[in-house]
Design a protein around this nucleic acid. Structure first.
Lengths: 229, 229
DNA sequence: AAGTGTTCGTGTAAATGAAACACGAAACAC
DNA sequence: GTGTTTCGTGTTTCATTTACACGAACACTT
């Protein structure tokens, strides 16, 4: 069923830069293109926006279709509209970034799509289209937001220890943090609730588990509160 | 000349929230719609993206066409893609915000388009489409960015005094700032160069004029420097 | 020429927040 | 029960931020 318009129209896509935290380092998910152009090269998962879905819905749908990942943190990043970014025709892409609780999801959707693969953000493959630019933008945004918004938890299991959280920050931001000061600061925000469980891994004292409380966060943001690590 | 595609496509527009600083308060420019839908209501200036221009180019072109404003600071804001945001058909809008040196431009393009008008941001008119949401988003973004990026100058004349800058910050952020601390901090960034001129207005000691040095700013950002008011 | 009104430009002390730092507690392995 | 490993906690020092007042420069009035 063809569709006709008076003036030419750009195609509209969403692309989604998916981040996960695994083995102590930040990873990003790319998929291998099966079709030309850039056949065989790696790319950011994404696809066309349908006329009856919002941009957010399109991003979630594509993510689910291409990677099997559902219910992740999703945030709009930037819209890329260079005229020649796709060699075939004019394509404008609304880019998102997603944060995945990899440790929770791994069992199910380890790498659902056979052609999807996790890469350390420090060693991305050569990417198709302008996807290297999109990836760079997403990584910069993630690092910036991690400092002043409590989104680190989105990369950890629902129950996590303060050490895990600290290691996440250290790995993503590339800095060393003082243990006592870090705990003082994070707990001072009153966003984490201690659980009645502890985590035992290895031959040492068990660690207190926490979870993030989004309700408390909502309340605080309305009172103009400022998170910063 | 009709254009036909296999699947239906959304129309793509850019909208541009234009801010200016005048009479000690932050203003925003809206234009009155001459056509249905929302005929007679106020709206954010904008229009369709052509297939042979980037999004930034489209935003600048529309701004020039509808308001006569050229060479302004322009930054992408967010992309709005709700399915029903335009009652006629699916329209996705890439929103920008612009900062205008009103005092410089006033003589020429006071309000070039007869149907354009400046409103205090505290008293916007009823707006067409979802433009109230876009405006709110833009204002929030401007206030946030003003704190941690040196963009305040974009709303002032090229040559300005520190008092003018302070009043701008106070008006936009809605806070009172200490004069001595403000000057200490701003000059400490080493982004402003004192000119060999002073500004004489009224019967009192003349004020030193400064200009913003974008080159210095570039150099500093590459060294991971952090601006904050 | 002297006096008045107004904004400009400047330094220091107090208070607050950030950074540095070390050791006992709890679990498991042997 | 001894050894090994990570967990959990306070205080002091240093740096940054806040609070605050008065002489200087000019125009205008008398």
């Amino acid at each position: 069923m063809p569709h006709t318009y008076e003036y030419p129209r750009a195609a509209l896509t969403v692309d989604c830069v998916v981040f996960g935290f695994d083995e102590g380092e930040l990873k990003v998910l790319f998929i291998e293109r099966g079709l030309a152009p850039f056949k065989g090269q790696w790319a950011i998962p994404g696809g066309f926006v349908r006329v009856d879905e919002t941009l957010d819905e399109a991003a979630r749908r594509e993510l689910e279709e291409e990677t099997g990942l559902g219910s992740v943190f999703l945030d709009q990043l930037y819209t890329f509209g260079d005229v020649k970014r796709d060699p075939r025709e004019r394509v404008v892409s609304v880019a998102y970034y997603a944060l995945v609780k990899l440790a929770d999801a791994r069992t199910r959707a380890a790498t659902d799509a056979a052609d999807a693969q996790w890469f350390p953000v420090s060693k991305p493959p050569k990417l198709a289209f302008d996807h290297a630019t999109i990836f760079d933008t997403a990584l910069a945004r993630l690092r910036a937001k991690l400092r002043y918004q409590p989104i680190g938890f989105e990369l950890l299991p629902q129950k996590f220890t303060l050490s895990q959280l600290q290691h996440l920050y250290e790995a993503v931001l590339g800095v060393e943090l003082d243990k006592r000061n870090f705990r003082k600061k994070v707990l001072g925000f009153d966003l984490l609730v201690p659980l009645k469980e502890t985590q035992m891994t290895g031959a040492h004292r068990p660690a207190q588990l926490f979870r993030f409380d989004p309700v408390k966060y909502e309340r605080l943001t309305k009172r103009g509160f400022h998170f910063e690590i």
